[in-house]
């Protein structure tokens, strides 16, 4: 299989500690500009009841889902604490301020 890297945004499009959404035909992917300065990409769907993670409050490398406050680890897509569940993550690379997703 060949790597399929797609350019989706500029880092500057995603303000620190906020997120933007990439629409795809398989559903939305959320791009987070996390507390460590890195960009992470996850399905825009909370493992709990599908809440839009892109609208949550981002802290460090985590996001708190806006619907019921589950906290999702941006690196692994896994729910933290007592909650269990996992959101799909995507590989991201940044070159010259341009963000690529591996799809």
């Amino acid at each position: 299989m060949t790597d399929n890297w797609v350019e989706v945004a500029k880092v500057a499009d995603i303000p620190p500690l906020l997120a933007r959404v990439v629409k795809t035909k398989h559903g939305d992917i959320a791009l987070f500009h996390a507390g460590d300065g890195q960009i992470y990409a996850l399905d825009n769907k909370c493992p709990h009841q599908g809440g839009p993670l892109s609208e949550g409050i981002v802290h460090d490398c985590r996001v708190a889902c806006p619907l019921h406050n589950w906290v999702i680890d941006l690196k692994t897509g896994e729910a933290t604490g007592p909650d269990e569940g996992k959101t799909r993550t995507y590989e991201v690379k940044v070159e010259d301020g341009r963000v690529f997703l591996k799809l």
């Binding site: 989706v8 945004a9 303000p15 906020l18 933007r20 990439v22």
Partner: peptide
């Protein structure tokens, strides 16, 4: 503010 719109739409 562009933040209300998707940053990209992939076909």
């Amino acid at each position: 503010d562009p933040i209300f719109r998707p940053v990209a739409e992939l076909a």
